[in-house]
Computed example of a mutant assay.
Amino acid sequence: MRRFLLATLTILGLAVLIPASVLAAAWAGPGATHWSGAALSGFGPTGSTDHDLPDRYVTQLGPINDLLSAHSRDLAGWRYDGDRIVVLAATDTGERLVRDTLRDYPLPWRVERVRFSDAHLQERKTRISNTPGLLRATPSRLVTVGVDPPANCVLLVAVRLDHDLFNRLDGYEDEACVRYAYAEGTVSLADNSGGPPATYWDPATLPGTYLTLLTGFPWHIAAGLLLFGAPWVLPALRRRARARAAAA
């Protein structure tokens, strides 16, 4: 009876811990890597933002936006980190351009190196959008596909997760990332009806999303098995050690 109870608690613990740890990693920032190689890098309601840009920056974005428009192969956009604008550069040339052009910029700023330029990600966005079966899925799963400068990736916002979505992003590695948005009232890219916005987030899709979170992220599965396997493995090791000691 004790072993049955322990086995039941282990299974229930894994069933809760693994999906929760995947969502926590996506929400906190590091993200979770699917076994296909694609990443779940965000978790939250649609339309949420990390920071609102202060008015003093809104009126001073002209030089930065002009620089980004003219040098999209060297730069990757900007983000606001709470006290300054961070301009993202993908090349050494881009870093020099930012430092030279914004030398007299009136507000706090800094330049940060990233892997992919805006031009590169825009090209990848086009390729991803044209991937067969990615946008036209039933039931609908994607809300938007666009370049996300702060994350430096092509961001796919999904209201439903499944292994097929991540598998179709195989090969893009860090160039593509998925955000799970659980809010209602979103309009899917798969809708061509032209009618009023519909609610594509459906509780009926939760079992599929849950199974994807439970079985699709190997590092989190391994961590869960290690944590919940200890109550089984450690007593067996102690019994084995005692048996060896008695035999000696």
Results as ranks from 00 to 15, higher is better:
1 M>N: 12
1 M>H: 11
2 R>K: 11
3 R>G: 07
3 R>A: 09
4 F>K: 10
4 F>H: 09
6 L>H: 10
6 L>W: 10
8 T>H: 02
10 T>L: 05
10 T>C: 09
11 I>P: 02
11 I>N: 04
11 I>L: 14
12 L>W: 12
19 P>H: 02
22 V>R: 08
24 A>L: 11
24 A>D: 05
25 A>I: 09
26 A>H: 03
32 A>R: 08
34 H>E: 05
35 W>E: 06
35 W>G: 08
36 S>I: 01
39 A>G: 09
40 L>F: 00
43 F>W: 04
49 T>H: 13
50 D>N: 13
52 D>T: 15
53 L>E: 01
56 R>C: 02
56 R>P: 01
60 Q>P: 00
61 L>I: 14
62 G>H: 03
62 G>K: 15
63 P>Y: 04
64 I>K: 13
65 N>F: 01
66 D>C: 04
67 L>A: 12
71 H>R: 11
72 S>Y: 01
74 D>Q: 12
76 A>P: 06
76 A>V: 08
79 R>V: 07
85 I>C: 04
87 V>A: 03
87 V>G: 03
88 L>A: 05
90 A>K: 10
90 A>P: 09
91 T>R: 06
92 D>N: 14
92 D>Y: 08
92 D>P: 07
98 V>S: 10
101 T>G: 00
102 L>M: 13
117 S>Y: 13
118 D>W: 13
118 D>Q: 15
119 A>C: 01
122 Q>M: 06
123 E>Q: 15
124 R>W: 05
125 K>L: 15
125 K>Y: 05
129 S>D: 15
131 T>E: 15
131 T>D: 10
132 P>Q: 12
133 G>A: 05
134 L>G: 07
142 L>I: 15
144 T>N: 14
145 V>F: 00
146 G>R: 15
146 G>L: 02
149 P>K: 11
149 P>R: 14
150 P>A: 05
151 A>E: 15
153 C>Q: 15
156 L>R: 04
159 V>Y: 02
161 L>I: 14
163 H>E: 07
163 H>Y: 00
165 L>Q: 00
165 L>G: 06
166 F>L: 09
176 A>V: 08
177 C>L: 03
181 A>Q: 10
181 A>F: 06
182 Y>N: 07
184 E>C: 02
184 E>Y: 05
188 S>T: 14
191 D>M: 01
192 N>D: 13
192 N>E: 09
192 N>A: 11
193 S>Q: 00
197 P>C: 05
199 T>C: 02
199 T>S: 05
199 T>Q: 03
200 Y>G: 05
201 W>R: 07
203 P>F: 01
204 A>N: 09
205 T>F: 00
207 P>V: 04
208 G>I: 08
210 Y>S: 04
213 L>S: 12
214 L>I: 11
214 L>C: 09
215 T>Y: 06
215 T>S: 10
216 G>C: 02
219 W>E: 12
221 I>T: 10
224 G>L: 04
226 L>E: 02
227 L>W: 12
229 G>V: 10
231 P>S: 04
235 P>C: 08
